[in-house]
Computed example of a mutant assay.
Amino acid sequence: MPPGYSLAGTGGRQDFDFLAGAWTTHQRRLKTRGEGSTEWVDAPSNVHCARQYLDGLTTAEESYSPAKSITGLFLYLFDLQKRQWSLYWIDPKSGNLGSPLVGGFAGNRGTFYGQDVDDGRPVKVRYAWTKVDNDHARWEQAFSFDGRTWETNWTAEFTRANSVEVCTRK
């Protein structure tokens, strides 16, 4: 397994309280994944609007492009018995619910692991969330194609925004 990979990580039901509200992002992606690329490209900066449900057990985060088209829906579900989060992404092009990543926060850093397929290749996946302060957060995605090393391939710097201004679709 790649370093740190574990499906046993736990957290608390308030781990994603910080995410509620509106955010803008600056995103970067590796130009090519799984080939040793070091060339990063800026990705479209999205708007993220998140709401909590069930007293914080569930957070739903909808992502929009600058043109206000939906780019995805993220679901964060907390299992009270396991004390573990399951993170899902719903692709707006297919409506498919992606494979879950599981884990939790230790302090201001959350790590979540799972398995997926990237262009037909099975990969181990790691999401890392960092709560920087009340108005800033960082998310990153890393894949392990070889089961030994991680390649960070996507990052997003989150900056808090005004919900009324950015979460109202026209």
Rank of each mutant, 00 (worst) to 15 (best):
T32E: 06
G4Y: 02
S86Y: 13
A8D: 03
R109L: 00
F105N: 09
W139L: 01
K68G: 10
D119N: 10
N153D: 09
G110R: 02
S86K: 10
E157C: 08
Y53F: 15
W154S: 04
V164K: 14
V117C: 12
Y76L: 15
K68D: 14
T111Q: 05
A142W: 01
A20K: 06
D15S: 00
Q81P: 08
A8K: 02
R138V: 09
S63P: 04
N162Q: 10
H136G: 01
S63R: 14
G114H: 13
Q52T: 05
D135V: 15
S86V: 09
H26C: 11
S86D: 05
A161I: 07
T155Y: 10
P92A: 09
F158H: 14
S63L: 12
T58D: 03
Y53L: 15
R109D: 00
Y5D: 02
S69E: 15
L19I: 11
A142G: 05
R160Q: 00
G98N: 00
L73E: 07
H136M: 07
P100N: 11
N153W: 01
K82N: 04
R169G: 06
R169H: 07
L30D: 04
Y64D: 04
C49S: 08
S94D: 08
T58G: 05
L97H: 02
Y127A: 04
T168A: 08
S163Q: 10
N162A: 14
K170H: 11
T32Q: 08
S163T: 12
G147K: 13
W85G: 11
W139G: 05
G114D: 11
T58N: 05
M1V: 02
T155E: 00
Q141V: 10
Y113E: 01
H48Y: 13
C49F: 09
A106T: 06
S6R: 04
L75S: 14
A43E: 01
T38C: 09
N46C: 02
V164S: 12
S99K: 14
V125A: 07
N108F: 04
D17L: 05
T168K: 07
D15E: 02
D146Y: 10
R169A: 14
Y88V: 12
R169P: 07
G34V: 06
R13K: 15
G21S: 07
K170T: 12
V166S: 00
G104C: 00
Q84L: 12
R29I: 02
C167A: 03
T149D: 09
L57W: 06
G36A: 11
A161L: 10
E157T: 05
S45K: 04
L101I: 06
Y5M: 03
V47I: 06
W85S: 13
S94F: 01
E35M: 13
K31L: 10
Q115E: 13
T111D: 09
L97Y: 06
W129V: 11
